[in-house]
Protein backbone atom coordinates (compact mmCIF):
# COMPACT_ATOMS: atom_id res chain seq x y z
CA UNK A 1 0.00 0.00 0.00
CA UNK A 2 1.42 3.36 -1.01
CA UNK A 3 1.96 6.06 1.55
CA UNK A 4 -1.00 8.44 1.87
CA UNK A 5 -3.36 6.11 0.02
CA UNK A 6 -5.89 6.26 2.92
CA UNK A 7 -5.81 10.06 2.66
CA UNK A 8 -6.33 9.91 -1.10
CA UNK A 9 -9.20 7.47 -0.74
CA UNK A 10 -10.82 9.55 1.98
CA UNK A 11 -10.46 12.71 -0.10
CA UNK A 12 -11.71 10.96 -3.24
CA UNK A 13 -14.90 9.85 -1.49
CA UNK A 14 -15.36 13.17 0.28
CA UNK A 15 -14.81 15.02 -3.00
CA UNK A 16 -17.49 12.87 -4.62
CA UNK A 17 -19.94 13.74 -1.85
CA UNK A 18 -19.10 17.46 -2.00
CA UNK A 19 -19.34 17.53 -5.79
CA UNK A 20 -22.73 15.82 -5.62
CA UNK A 21 -23.78 18.35 -2.96
CA UNK A 22 -22.66 21.31 -5.10
CA UNK A 23 -24.45 19.97 -8.16
CA UNK A 24 -27.55 19.17 -6.10
CA UNK A 25 -27.56 22.68 -4.63
CA UNK A 26 -27.21 24.26 -8.07
CA UNK A 27 -30.00 22.11 -9.50
CA UNK A 28 -32.24 23.02 -6.54
CA UNK A 29 -31.39 26.74 -6.87
CA UNK A 30 -32.11 26.74 -10.61
CA UNK A 31 -35.40 24.91 -10.07
CA UNK A 32 -36.28 27.40 -7.33
CA UNK A 33 -35.58 30.32 -9.70
CA UNK A 34 -37.68 28.70 -12.41
CA UNK A 35 -40.52 28.23 -9.92
CA UNK A 36 -40.19 31.90 -8.98
CA UNK A 37 -40.40 32.85 -12.64
CA UNK A 38 -43.53 30.76 -13.06
CA UNK A 39 -45.02 32.33 -9.92
CA UNK A 40 -44.32 35.78 -11.30
CA UNK A 41 -45.97 34.84 -14.58
CA UNK A 42 -48.99 33.48 -12.74
CA UNK A 43 -49.26 36.68 -10.70
CA UNK A 44 -49.04 38.89 -13.80
CA UNK A 45 -51.53 36.69 -15.58
CA UNK A 46 -53.95 36.89 -12.70
CA UNK A 47 -53.63 40.68 -12.55
CA UNK A 48 -54.18 40.94 -16.30
CA UNK A 49 -57.26 38.73 -16.09
CA UNK A 50 -58.69 41.10 -13.49
CA UNK A 51 -57.78 44.15 -15.59
CA UNK A 52 -59.35 42.63 -18.68
CA UNK A 53 -62.51 41.78 -16.85
CA UNK A 54 -62.55 45.26 -15.36
CA UNK A 55 -62.24 46.86 -18.78
CA UNK A 56 -64.89 44.59 -20.23
CA UNK A 57 -67.20 45.50 -17.38
CA UNK A 58 -66.38 49.16 -17.79
CA UNK A 59 -67.07 48.78 -21.49
CA UNK A 60 -70.49 47.31 -20.75
CA UNK A 61 -71.34 50.00 -18.22
CA UNK A 62 -70.31 52.86 -20.49
CA UNK A 63 -71.53 51.34 -23.72
CA UNK A 64 -72.57 54.70 -25.06
CA UNK A 65 -69.28 56.41 -24.45
CA UNK A 66 -66.55 53.78 -24.15
CA UNK A 67 -64.10 55.52 -26.44
CA UNK A 68 -62.71 57.61 -23.63
CA UNK A 69 -61.06 54.42 -22.46
CA UNK A 70 -59.15 53.59 -25.64
CA UNK A 71 -55.93 54.47 -23.84
CA UNK A 72 -56.71 51.88 -21.16
CA UNK A 73 -57.31 49.32 -23.89
CA UNK A 74 -54.01 50.11 -25.52
CA UNK A 75 -52.20 49.86 -22.23
CA UNK A 76 -53.75 46.48 -21.57
CA UNK A 77 -52.68 45.21 -24.99
CA UNK A 78 -49.17 46.39 -24.23
CA UNK A 79 -49.16 44.47 -20.94
CA UNK A 80 -50.49 41.34 -22.64
CA UNK A 81 -47.69 41.65 -25.16
CA UNK A 82 -45.05 42.03 -22.41
CA UNK A 83 -46.45 38.97 -20.70
CA UNK A 84 -46.07 37.12 -24.01
CA UNK A 85 -42.36 37.98 -24.10
CA UNK A 86 -41.88 36.58 -20.62
CA UNK A 87 -43.82 33.46 -21.46
CA UNK A 88 -41.69 32.91 -24.59
CA UNK A 89 -38.56 33.24 -22.48
CA UNK A 90 -39.90 30.74 -19.94
CA UNK A 91 -40.96 28.33 -22.68
CA UNK A 92 -37.48 28.48 -24.22
CA UNK A 93 -36.00 27.70 -20.80
CA UNK A 94 -38.31 24.95 -19.60
CA UNK A 95 -39.44 23.51 -22.92
CA UNK A 96 -42.80 23.62 -24.68
CA UNK A 97 -43.85 20.31 -23.11
CA UNK A 98 -43.57 21.54 -19.54
CA UNK A 99 -46.98 21.13 -17.86
CA UNK A 100 -46.87 24.51 -16.11
CA UNK A 101 -45.79 26.24 -19.30
CA UNK A 102 -48.70 24.65 -21.17
CA UNK A 103 -51.14 25.75 -18.44
CA UNK A 104 -49.77 29.32 -18.51
CA UNK A 105 -49.96 29.34 -22.31
CA UNK A 106 -53.62 28.39 -22.16
CA UNK A 107 -54.37 31.23 -19.79
CA UNK A 108 -52.31 33.61 -21.89
CA UNK A 109 -54.13 32.47 -25.02
CA UNK A 110 -57.46 33.24 -23.35
CA UNK A 111 -56.19 36.70 -22.40
CA UNK A 112 -55.13 37.30 -25.99
CA UNK A 113 -58.49 36.24 -27.37
CA UNK A 114 -60.30 38.50 -24.90
CA UNK A 115 -57.99 41.39 -25.76
CA UNK A 116 -58.58 40.72 -29.45
CA UNK A 117 -62.32 40.80 -28.98
CA UNK A 118 -62.06 43.97 -26.93
CA UNK A 119 -59.98 45.60 -29.63
CA UNK A 120 -62.59 44.65 -32.23
CA UNK A 121 -65.38 46.13 -30.12
CA UNK A 122 -63.47 49.36 -29.50
CA UNK A 123 -62.72 49.62 -33.20
CA UNK A 124 -66.37 49.23 -34.17
CA UNK A 125 -67.71 51.55 -31.50
CA UNK A 126 -65.08 54.24 -31.76
CA UNK A 127 -64.70 54.12 -35.54
CA UNK A 128 -61.00 53.42 -35.53
CA UNK A 129 -59.21 50.95 -37.78
CA UNK A 130 -56.36 49.27 -35.95
CA UNK A 131 -54.27 46.75 -37.88
CA UNK A 132 -54.71 43.39 -36.20
CA UNK A 133 -52.72 40.28 -37.09
CA UNK A 134 -53.56 36.84 -35.79
CA UNK A 135 -50.58 34.53 -36.12
CA UNK A 136 -50.98 30.76 -35.83
CA UNK A 137 -47.88 28.59 -35.43
CA UNK A 138 -47.14 24.99 -34.57
CA UNK A 139 -44.48 23.53 -32.29
CA UNK A 140 -44.85 20.04 -33.74
CA UNK A 141 -41.44 19.23 -35.23
CA UNK A 142 -41.36 19.49 -39.03
CA UNK A 143 -44.77 21.10 -39.42
CA UNK A 144 -43.64 24.71 -39.59
CA UNK A 145 -40.13 25.33 -40.84
CA UNK A 146 -40.80 29.03 -41.45
CA UNK A 147 -42.43 29.84 -38.11
CA UNK A 148 -39.22 31.19 -36.52
CA UNK A 149 -38.75 33.56 -39.45
CA UNK A 150 -42.40 34.61 -39.43
CA UNK A 151 -42.34 35.21 -35.66
CA UNK A 152 -39.20 37.33 -35.93
CA UNK A 153 -40.64 39.36 -38.82
CA UNK A 154 -43.81 40.00 -36.80
CA UNK A 155 -41.75 41.11 -33.79
CA UNK A 156 -39.91 43.52 -36.05
CA UNK A 157 -43.14 44.91 -37.51
CA UNK A 158 -44.77 45.24 -34.09
CA UNK A 159 -41.71 47.03 -32.74
CA UNK A 160 -41.43 49.34 -35.75
CA UNK A 161 -45.14 50.08 -36.13
CA UNK A 162 -46.65 50.32 -32.62
CA UNK A 163 -50.20 50.62 -33.96
CA UNK A 164 -49.97 47.02 -35.20
CA UNK A 165 -51.51 44.52 -32.82
CA UNK A 166 -50.19 40.99 -33.05
CA UNK A 167 -51.76 37.97 -31.37
CA UNK A 168 -49.79 34.72 -31.54
CA UNK A 169 -51.42 31.34 -31.03
CA UNK A 170 -50.02 27.84 -30.70
CA UNK A 171 -52.40 26.04 -33.05
CA UNK A 172 -52.00 22.72 -31.25
CA UNK A 173 -52.84 24.00 -27.79
CA UNK A 174 -55.73 22.00 -26.39
CA UNK A 175 -58.11 24.87 -25.56
CA UNK A 176 -61.78 25.15 -26.50
CA UNK A 177 -61.76 28.91 -27.02
CA UNK A 178 -58.80 28.59 -29.37
CA UNK A 179 -60.54 25.83 -31.34
CA UNK A 180 -63.54 28.13 -31.71
CA UNK A 181 -61.35 31.05 -32.84
CA UNK A 182 -59.66 28.79 -35.41
CA UNK A 183 -63.08 27.68 -36.64
CA UNK A 184 -64.52 31.20 -36.73
CA UNK A 185 -61.51 32.53 -38.63
CA UNK A 186 -61.47 29.36 -40.81
CA UNK A 187 -57.74 28.80 -40.23
CA UNK A 188 -56.37 25.65 -41.87
CA UNK A 189 -53.48 23.51 -40.64
CA UNK A 190 -50.97 25.12 -42.95
CA UNK A 191 -48.28 27.01 -41.09
CA UNK A 192 -47.45 29.74 -40.53
CA UNK A 193 -51.02 31.00 -40.86
CA UNK A 194 -52.09 34.63 -40.60
CA UNK A 195 -55.36 36.50 -40.34
CA UNK A 196 -54.55 40.14 -41.03
CA UNK A 197 -57.55 42.44 -40.62
CA UNK A 198 -59.79 39.48 -41.37
CA UNK A 199 -57.89 38.31 -44.48
CA UNK A 200 -56.30 34.85 -44.28
CA UNK A 201 -52.88 34.01 -45.71
CA UNK A 202 -50.46 31.10 -45.36
CA UNK A 203 -46.70 30.66 -45.53
CA UNK A 204 -43.78 33.06 -45.23
CA UNK A 205 -41.24 33.80 -47.92
CA UNK A 206 -39.64 37.22 -47.40
CA UNK A 207 -40.32 40.24 -45.22
CA UNK A 208 -40.96 42.30 -48.33
CA UNK A 209 -43.63 39.89 -49.56
CA UNK A 210 -45.09 39.60 -46.08
CA UNK A 211 -45.48 43.38 -45.76
CA UNK A 212 -47.78 43.32 -48.79
CA UNK A 213 -50.33 41.44 -46.68
CA UNK A 214 -50.74 44.49 -44.44
CA UNK A 215 -52.82 47.59 -45.27
CA UNK A 216 -50.71 50.41 -46.69
CA UNK A 217 -52.11 52.71 -43.99
CA UNK A 218 -50.06 50.87 -41.38
CA UNK A 219 -46.79 51.96 -43.00
CA UNK A 220 -48.04 55.42 -43.97
CA UNK A 221 -49.36 56.65 -40.63
CA UNK A 222 -47.35 54.81 -38.02
CA UNK A 223 -44.29 56.36 -36.49
CA UNK A 224 -41.30 54.08 -36.52
CA UNK A 225 -40.21 53.22 -33.01
CA UNK A 226 -36.74 52.26 -31.84
CA UNK A 227 -37.62 51.63 -28.25
CA UNK A 228 -36.72 48.21 -26.90
CA UNK A 229 -39.76 46.44 -25.65
CA UNK A 230 -38.46 44.34 -22.77
Amino acid sequence: MLKNTPLALKNALLALAITALIIGTVVYAINYLDRQRLSELTAIQSQLATDTLSLETQFSLLENAPCEDIASGNELSQEVSTLGDRLSSTEARLGSKNAQVIELKKQYTLLQIRDYLLTKRLATTCHITPTVALYFYSNVPGTCTDCDRAGYALSYLRQTYPSLRVYSFDYDLDLGALRTLEAVEKVQQNFPAFVINGKRSYGFSTLEEFEKEFPKALFATSTASTTTKK
Binding site: R149, Y152, A153, Y156, Q159, T160, T206, L207, E208, T226
Partner: peptide, 11 residues
Protein backbone atom coordinates in the same frame (compact mmCIF):
# COMPACT_ATOMS: atom_id res chain seq x y z
CA UNK B 1 -28.91 34.35 -40.28
CA UNK B 2 -31.91 32.42 -41.60
CA UNK B 3 -34.43 33.89 -39.18
CA UNK B 4 -33.32 37.50 -39.53
CA UNK B 5 -32.93 37.41 -43.29
CA UNK B 6 -34.50 40.51 -44.85
CA UNK B 7 -35.04 42.35 -41.55
CA UNK B 8 -33.14 45.67 -41.30
CA UNK B 9 -29.79 45.48 -39.47
CA UNK B 10 -30.76 48.37 -37.20
CA UNK B 11 -33.43 46.14 -35.66
Amino acid sequence: FTVTSGVPLAY
